[in-house]
Design a protein around this nucleic acid. Structure first.
Lengths: 227, 227
DNA sequence: TCCGTTTCAAAATGATACATTATTTAGAGA
DNA sequence: TCTCTAAATAATGTATCATTTTGAAACGGA
């Protein structure tokens, strides 16, 4: 077979694993990341570790002070807010495009995905749920007709501080309802409704986070007149 | 004084210098970047060079194929398209917010900036023109009330492949008309009109680029039904 | 000549070891 | 307890080497 096998280098494996550990909350914000210890844990020499840390530094996932080492980057709520705003704008645009491009078969596949996701949520399998949530969202985005845009949205998801949401998981019913609304809007071929459903989904998520962090009343922070 | 002196490491110097060389065009797109040669040129060992290349890779300034080395990133028209889309969405949102926040004094300042910009364009001072263009745009964005969002827009402008526009500069009259439209919409306090004016500005720029690169008729690529 | 295979050199990756420098910690002395 | 000093710690940088892969050159048969 002409399959070109992906040959991941050790440094890439370390980058991916560290990113996963950070975003999943296993490595708390501010934790020190000593090269020799990482090398031991990843069964490698320090050379790939040092390269991996530079890559993560450029992603703003870790911060480095010269000669003092590298730490997991602290929470930057303001940055998270900007990411939410850009996610909301960009993903709703992709959603509008996808809404008029999905075939009936693909719609059925999306529905099956949603069922899987809801099942995982119901049995509190948060690992599967998160994975399926991403697959459900990207099932639409990937059909927006602009691959490079999907790539950029993927970057937004990768750098998104998911661990912010860890301690107080989102209300499952809300998410379920919103996902269903997105699906139904797409089924109806209503691009505008699909885009709005996604905007509402992202907004509601941020409003909850915002209220928890700032203690402010849940006014819509996306309203151009607010803040 | 409690000034903490910045102590640049060698790898940071290499990152900065390579970035400068790439963005200034001294290192052409696609050029190979062999570690040992770079080490020689920067009078360092290979280790700092390898770390520097990882950082630049995360910035998308260079691309690396495993076991095949690192090259200066080539022009990626598809990626430029995604950047245009995200710019259009994000900057028009910032513009809408700014439109209801500018004071009469600031409006006057914006007008003076625009006069300066038009003057620079008229005398074909493209360096000043580009700088003033950015100042004019960001004069609004910076008043949207969300600093972190401005930061992200700034990243979009920094990563933007401006050299794509080098050989055929934009029609100056179009830009001038559109800038004026933005300003007048803000003067009227019409957030929606200001946002739309900016969307039109970005769209028109991309349509021209798109036509030149793909030879396609100038259908609006932002229309969700197109492509 | 054209095409595929073999061989070989170059380069990236990874592993060690060590020097240098700055930070942190521990401890002695006040 | 506080401060200063000294050792330990850790990051940075240098130097070499082994391994693996790629790219190209050499080779040989159709």
């Amino acid at each position: 077979m002409g399959m070109t096998e992906a040959l991941p280098t050790k440094r890439d494996q370390i980058v991916d694993e560290l990113r996963r550990l950070i975003l999943s909350g296993n490595l708390p914000r501010g934790a020190k990341l000593p090269q020799d210890e990482l090398a031991r844990q990843f069964s490698s020499s320090i050379t790939p570790v040092r390269e991996a840390l530079r890559a993560l530094e450029a992603e703003n996932l870790v911060v480095s002070e010269p000669r003092r080492g590298v730490r997991v980057a602290g929470i930057n709520f303001e940055r998270a807010k900007a990411t939410y705003i850009i996610r909301r704008l960009t993903e709703s645009y992709a959603m509008r495009r996808a809404a008029i491009r999905l075939s009936p078969l693909e719609l059925r596949q999306a529905e099956l995905l949603l069922d899987e996701l809801n099942a995982a949520t119901a049995r509190h399998d948060s690992d599967s749920a998160r994975q399926l949530n991403k697959r459900f969202h990207f099932f639409f985005y990937e059909r927006c007709g602009i691959p490079s845009l999907v790539e950029e949205i993927d970057v937004l998801w990768r750098v998104f501080p998911w661990d912010l949401l860890l301690d107080s998981p989102e209300p499952a019913e809300d998410s379920e309802t919103e996902h269903r609304a997105m699906l139904e809007a797409v089924r109806a071929g209503d691009a505008e409704a699909a885009g709005l459903a996604l905007e509402h989904h992202v907004s509601r998520s941020f409003i909850a986070l915002n209220a928890r962090y700032t203690g402010k009343p849940p006014a819509d922070p996306f309203d151009i007149a607010n803040d």
